[in-house]
Design a protein around this nucleic acid. Sequence first.
DNA 1: CAAAAATGAACGATTGTTCATTTTTAAATA
DNA 2: TATTTAAAAATGAACAATCGTTCATTTTTG
Lengths: 192, 192
Amino acid sequence: MSQRKKSQLKRIALVSATISLVNDDGFHAASMSKIAKLAGVVPGTIYLYFQNKQDLINQVYLDVKKEFTTFAFENYTSSNSVQDDFELIWKRIAQFKLTHLDKALFLHQCDITPMLDEESRQEGIKHLQPLLNLWIKGQQEGLIKPLSPFLLYAYSIFPLSFLTHSKKRGVCEISEEDLEQTYQAAWDSIKL
Amino acid sequence: MSQRKKSQLKRIALVSATISLVNDDGFHAASMSKIAKLAGVVPGTIYLYFQNKQDLINQVYLDVKKEFTTFAFENYTSSNSVQDDFELIWKRIAQFKLTHLDKALFLHQCDITPMLDEESRQEGIKHLQPLLNLWIKGQQEGLIKPLSPFLLYAYSIFPLSFLTHSKKRGVCEISEEDLEQTYQAAWDSIKL
DNA sequence: CAAAAATGAACGATTGTTCATTTTTAAATA
DNA sequence: TATTTAAAAATGAACAATCGTTCATTTTTG
């Protein structure tokens, strides 16, 4: 294997170890030595790939956030129906949050704890723009309540994070039928 | 002032300092020495009031959770109208989450990070029973969607945590009118 | 054989916790 | 009421362990 490839793999292993340990232990308890050990390297090696721990977290966050939004908007091309578009995007988001549990949990933990640089947080928000645009279009057409983007997000997207946690803890299963009802709850909360 | 009173005040200072530092720095970065300093005592003193750091967190969580649910269900006596009852409880919960920002943030952080004993988490959930009972009643009367309590919670209550964070970060204000619309979104998501 | 990658020991700082010592408290005695 | 005294509360220094990070050295690469 080429050195380039091996370096890529090592970086991926470090990112993966970080996600796993931050989820299990929290930011500060996920020490550089634990991360290194789980990734199969020595602590010093991390500093060949990342400037320091904060940079590691920031990069992992942006990596995962990008993967999430890429997944969410894959194949999305604005159609004529706001409702159809929303359903498409919502279900992609739901699929990600209910299958990539660890990554979704990591994102949520970054969003609500102070472990992230404000700059990286702002950078991460940008990627949701297509959804915000869709909401604006829906409001102009009188299909969606005239609420702020914060409220629309809080009611139609944020609840999925609760389900991610419930599923991760094994206290709640979401069948295909549940998911349909869950989508309906999301749409009902923001539709006019 | 009596010694009993002084001890109570000191315990309150420790609880308050813990909430503040865990919110700002996270669980592990909120060290015993920082907590002690903010509460105006010496680290060793904490161990007169709490067994260890884990016990401190558990107790603070249960304290705050109890305060929250006491506030939420204050003056609540089941009337004949499920919808009226839900509105009453929802607005009390909203009032708490939008005014006691620090306590609400702390609870949310406990709920989604691994800093809490599973036993304390289970203990904390129990206090929401009146709301679960109301939902069951509403479902029996055909007023509320036949969803699991997890989904009902995820859509009608959990979104408020997002607003707590937005308000704390100063990126979002909730006027009295907004709150009414927010309630409507909550109700719309679970009503039949 | 030079360059790049990885190592692992070491740094000072800080962590959670303990404990002998000192200070404060409130009741008992004068 | 003033003094004594035993218990309770609080202190702060000290513990081993671990933290994030650095760097001279070794190993691997092309």
